[in-house]
C-alpha cells in the first residue's frame, strides 16, 4: 500500500449555520457518502471565522482546513460572507506566499440546497489533502 492511501488526514471545516451547515445536513438526509475525515465547527456566519482559527488549527497539526459560507448574495446576515471573502482572500494569498501548500487551506460556498455539492467538496478536499500528505509547515513542535 502506498503512503498516500495509508495517510488518513485530519480536516477541520468551519461551516456557516444557515447555508453550508444546512447543506451538510442535507447531504446526510440524502445519504450521500463521503470520507470520514472532516470535523465540523458550526459558526453563525463565514464572517465569524477569524484567521486565528485557521492558524491555530495549522499549528495543531490539522492537515486540511475548509471554510464554507453562503453563496454571494445569500448571506443570512446580508453581507457577512462578503466581509469574510475579503479577509480570506488576504489570508489565503499570504499563506500561499509564505509557502503553505496551496490546497492546505480552502474556501468555498455551499448553499442549504447543495447537499450533493457539499459531499463533492468534502471528497475533493480529502483527496487534495491526501495528495499533499501530512501537514508539516507551521505545525508546532514541542
Amino acid at each position: 500500500m502506498s503512503r498516500e492511501t495509508d495517510f488518513n488526514p485530519k480536516i477541520l471545516a468551519f461551516l456557516c449555520n444557515w447555508c453550508s451547515y444546512a447543506g451538510a445536513d442535507l447531504a446526510g438526509i440524502s445519504r450521500l457518502q463521503y470520507p470520514a475525515n472532516v470535523r465540523v465547527i458550526r459558526v453563525p456566519c463565514s464572517g465569524r471565522v477569524d484567521p486565528f482559527y485557521i492558524l491555530k488549527a495549522l499549528q495543531q497539526g490539522v492537515d486540511g482546513i475548509l471554510v464554507s459560507g453562503c453563496h454571494p448574495g445569500d448571506c443570512h446576515y446580508l453581507s457577512g460572507n462578503y466581509v469574510a471573502r475579503r479577509r480570506f482572500a488576504l489570508l489565503k494569498k499570504l499563506l500561499d506566499y509564505v509557502g503553505i501548500e496551496d490546497k492546505r487551506v480552502q474556501f468555498t460556498w455551499v448553499s442549504a440546497a447543495e447537499g450533493e455539492r457539499y459531499s463533492q467538496v468534502i471528497k475533493g478536499i480529502t483527496e487534495d489533502i491526501k495528495k499533499l500528505g501530512p501537514a508539516k509547515r507551521l505545525v508546532k513542535k514541542f
Binding site: 471565522v49 491555530k56 453581507s79 457577512g80
Partner: peptide, 30 residues
C-alpha cells in the same frame, strides 16, 4: 453574525455563543 469580531485586530469584540475561547477549545480538542 460576528463579522465585526473576526475583523477586529485587537480582539476587542467577541460573540456570545461562539466566543473566541469556545472556538479555541473546540479547535484544540481536535
Amino acid at each position: 453574525c460576528g463579522a465585526c469580531s473576526a475583523n477586529c485586530r485587537c480582539n476587542a469584540i467577541d460573540v456570545c455563543g461562539t466566543t473566541a475561547e469556545q472556538i479555541y477549545e473546540a479547535v484544540c480538542a481536535f
